[in-house]
Amino acid sequence: MRRSFFPVIVVVFALIAIWYVAVVPMNIKMALTDAERSGMVVTPSGAKERRDRSAILLVAQNPFAIKATFSLERPRLPAPHQVTIELWNSTVNKKITSKRSLIFHGWITLSATLLGFAIGTGLGILLAVGIVYSRAMDMSVMPWAIASQTIPILAIAPMIIVVLNSVGVQGLLPKAIISAYLSFFPVVVGMVKGLRSPDHMQLDQLKTYNANSSQGFWKLRLPSSMPYLFASLKIGIAASLVGAIVGELPTGAVRGLGARLLSGSYYGQTIQIWSALLGAAFLAASLVAIIGLAQRITLKRMGMS
């Protein structure tokens, strides 16, 4: 833990430094336009003149405007501290029930994520059991499962929403189904591998006990598959979150992290977009960490770590 702390901190600081450096040329034109409007002398004068100039050259010619690039209201690239302040204001300083609270929107997305993850994991395990025990399913289901993942989720998400809406299903479930669509696949692949992981000797051994196939499943195959299941769950939960956010985009949803991203881009609220993005990243990291913890505890207790 202590050994990994230093490199992690160094990388984080490096990223923030690169971010700050990038803010200046990204926002310089906007900052110069504002400065000119408030009566300052800008070289060259006139937004039209500056449009095709290199951003770095403009920074060099107008160093007085550098400070302003960090505090624009609608910057092309918001500075890290602007995003941090927005994150703070939209979480700690807002009531959770407020429409402007990122926690409120995060919960909307999280609930769809968790429901979708549960459906996807359940479906994935069932399909994997079917594939392992039935040759017909092995031949027929796997190609479709793979094909399902080659369709861009952005293309199929609106169709799922529209079709379900036309039969009266709205709200949480359509988003959860898109989540499940993305998360069942890693679970199928991992569980098929895991359920097939017992070696010949172990299977022969059960045969000598004259064990039936359900005993073989519960006593050998399922416990053997646990390391594979957890690896899949980590991928699955992250995919679920992506699915839930994507599910919020095409419908013009008003709630959820996806809705924050969408409305931010409608109104040029880049700070809002970035804070929603960081919020989503934080949520994904937390979910993966929780599964990682469950994995460590479970496998340790099973003597498999």
């Binding site: 000797m201 172990q202 022969d204 051994q205 000598t208 006593k219 050998l220 416990p223 207790r301 099973m302 003597g303 498999m304």
Partner: peptide, 11 residues
């Protein structure tokens, strides 16, 4: 039947 490896279940 006793196999070459003990094959005990770790869990």
């Amino acid at each position: 039947y006793v196999f070459q490896a003990a094959g005990l279940y770790p869990w």
